[in-house]
Design a binder for these strands. Structure first.
Lengths: 194, 194
DNA sequence: CCTAATGATTGCTTATTGCAACCGGTTAAT
DNA sequence: ATTAACCGGTTGCAATAAGCAATCATTAGG
């Protein structure tokens, strides 16, 4: 990748590529940015992946970043068209849809891990918001694989490994987050009292 | 990361965070997307990182994706303000500027590696455009570290390791790309000749 | 019956992107 | 000396995208 180079020949290929496929270029970086490189698509996938949000209203009302409904609808449509997300009827309500990550979507886990690691190192995040990034980074590819297996169970109906017991990766990340919160809350209490 | 959860307490924190810092939320994923999650910033960094483009005109005219000059100027300004890129005078011309990646920018290498790996697996890239993604993915963190060291030499004036000889990582990726091109060109020739 | 839930859609305003021409100054070529 | 190329942008305008808040018809629960 990048990847795309600067030779005359590639300029020619670029023209043909754009005509044939509608893409700015055939570079994997560029193609990925075209698919998920807007301000909202990765947020939607994140909420599905880590927050277990699978319904429109959930994604809309529990969005920390306050996504607008037209943007959410548009992004879900695009992600579904791209094959990163799938949509099915939910049996609990005639109008209710359940959105699921596909294998293509699940394999964004390493991308999220690296984005999170970079962000938590270089941007003004708080401890409780960076703990999960740290754990994913420390866990490395074995932890990502385990997380992806968990997601295949939850989102694609893959049979869980019968040898696997205990909380899944998302739950463990959540527990670590809550532990930091609890520590901060008790620290805050002693500040107030002390 | 992701991280950001859905508790009442976090809703409160979110409000304070937004007031204090101007961010949608303090989640590392969201913060990273706010910084580099538009359609063009990662392309600019990619061209600096992998194409060794360091000047405005180079970035403008050798952009495979045909970036517009106002967008390029804006993105360079933003990346510089964010500390991902630095700008200095180039001694070869009074008006000429040279843009360099900072440590913060260089440490985006793993993000690019993962984005490239995902894109080359799931999106319609060609073989020659995905070979470098494959190599970076296969090389893993040791290869990324080596690449980052190379970038620190090229962009930050770090002294090269005297024990290191031979082509740097970017050159090796480029050579692999050219080898695929050469193979395709000879394959094409035999097609033409029958 | 009324209220809540459902996944959107809509009308409008604001912001961003993209195109292509342009700018004043500096350096190189003729 | 004149002309051409280089330099990093800036500009005016049209097209597109994002954001806000209200709205919609249908479905389910009390």
């Amino acid at each position: 990748m990048a990847y795309c180079n600067w030779f005359f020949l590639e300029k020619t290929l670029n023209t043909k590529n754009e005509v044939a496929t509608g893409h700015r270029s055939g570079c994997p970086i560029n193609l990925t940015v075209e698919v998920v490189g807007d301000k909202w698509s990765l947020i939607v996938v994140r909420d599905m992946m880590f927050g277990n949000k699978r319904h429109f209203r959930d994604l809309l009302t529990h969005s920390q970043e306050k996504i607008a409904s037209n943007i959410l609808a548009d992004r879900l449509r695009r992600l579904t068209a791209e094959g990163i997300v799938s949509k099915a009827d939910d049996p609990s309500h005639k109008q209710k849809a359940i959105y699921s990550l596909t294998e293509k979507g699940i394999e964004l886990v390493p991308v999220f891990a690296m984005i999170g690691a970079w962000g938590s190192k270089w941007l003004p995040v708080s401890e409780e918001l960076s703990i999960r990034a740290r754990l994913l980074e420390e866990g490395g590819p074995p932890l990502w694989e385990e997380f992806m297996d968990d997601l295949r169970v939850a989102h694609m109906g893959v049979m869980p490994d019968p040898k696997k017991t205990g909380p899944d990766v998302r739950e463990r990340l959540q527990a670590a987050y809550e532990a930091v919160l609890a520590r901060q809350a008790s620290g805050r209490a002693s500040e107030v009292t002390g």
